[in-house]
């Protein structure tokens, strides 16, 4: 099996997939670093060198004013309400939610990438893992070796898991290294508050814990990794089912984007919470965002994603083993 995984890794490395992904991540990180840098500069210009409490207080006031504007949806309103309560909690506990430094940048960047950007990167690797062998015809050679079909597919899947791990870790490393050039590399031990419980419109702070940022990052990245893995698995299934790589990618892309859109507007469609793409924002549970649909919890989302992942795997193997190759 190790030999087979080596083969698959060889293909991914030679196709320069991981390099491409790393390149895209690097460019994006540079962009976001720059934009955040500008943002900070602008704030400096406007308010002078104020400490973070003042800024946070001002953000709270601004949000309060936004809530009172007419024409704002109820959902948005309650989300803003939650944000205020959370920011107030940070303020009351004298914890800076945006401790300057690369780790904080990595944290927020990962938070924003979990439901679209990273899944897309995973797709780059996963989408053609099987379908490219079919469209290039190499599958004929692959499947006429004295190796059972399920082992061939398993080696591909293991390679996918490994590649996803590489991508997620590279994502963390690159964003740390690049953003650190501007923000500095300190801030690993800065406290971060997690464990907010959202109950209706209220923020429950009973279960809150304050942990050092590196621990938070580890938790966050493991969740990011899990999401990437599930998205990868589903893409993998599509790659088995659909011979045409672009078509498979299109299907996955549509699902991901619709998930991103739906998340902000499905609160009244209860059963949508069983769709995998609604459950991608796992880090939201850590940072205490309101879930897209009431009643969703970290446990629930993990379960839904796991079930989708397992189902996708079963379908992949069942189809791949039986398929006639023409």
């Amino acid at each position: 099996m190790i030999n087979l995984v080596k083969n698959e890794m060889l293909k991914i490395v030679r196709k320069k997939r991981i390099l491409v992904v790393a390149g895209i991540i690097a460019v994006l990180v540079a962009l976001f670093t720059y934009s955040q840098f500008r943002e900070i500069e602008r704030r400096l210009e406007r308010f002078g060198d104020v400490d973070w409490r003042t800024t946070l207080q001002q953000q709270i006031i601004d949000t309060q004013n936004r809530i009172t504007s007419s024409g704002i949806s109820d959902e948005w309103k309650s989300e803003l309400q939650l944000r205020i309560q959370q920011q107030q909690y940070y303020l009351d506990n004298d914890v800076n939610p945006m401790e300057p430094g690369a780790p904080t940048f990595v944290r927020t960047f990962a938070e924003h990438s979990i439901n679209l950007f990273l899944p897309l990167m995973v797709m780059v690797v996963a989408a053609d893992m099987v379908s490219s062998e079919r469209s290039a015809g190499t599958v004929k050679l692959l499947l006429t070796r004295p190796v059972k079909r399920w082992r061939v597919l398993m080696s591909k899947y293991i390679t996918l898991i490994l590649s996803v791990s590489v991508i997620v870790v590279l994502f963390g490393l690159l964003s740390y290294l690049i953003s650190g050039l501007i923000f500095g590399y300190q801030g690993w031990t800065a406290p971060v508050i997690t464990g907010f419980n959202v109950e209706g419109n209220e923020l429950n702070t009973n279960t809150v814990q304050m942990i050092p940022q590196w621990q938070y990052l580890l938790m966050e990245f493991s969740l990011v990794w899990f999401v990437a893995l599930i998205v990868g698995t589903i893409t993998f299934m599509l790659s088995v089912l659909i011979r045409n790589t672009p078509a498979g990618m299109g299907v996955m892309l549509a699902a991901l984007i619709s998930g991103a859109i739906l998340s902000s507007m499905v609160s009244s469609w209860e059963s949508a919470k069983y769709l995998f793409m609604i459950n991608l924002n796992l880090t939201g549970y850590l940072s205490g965002q309101a879930p897209p649909i009431e009643g969703m919890t970290l446990g629930f989302s993990l379960l839904v994603l796991t079930i989708w992942g397992i189902a996708a795997l079963i379908v992949s193997f069942a189809v791949f083993i039986r398929q006639d190759i023409y």
Binding site: L4, N7, L10, K11, K140, P146
Partner: peptide
């Protein structure tokens, strides 16, 4: 149909790894 992005030798190694 061999892997066009690999060298001939890499292709052979690839298939050799699938044999005992």
């Amino acid at each position: 149909e061999l892997y066009s992005y690999l060298t001939g030798w890499e292709n052979l190694e690839h298939f050799a790894r699938m044999l005992p």
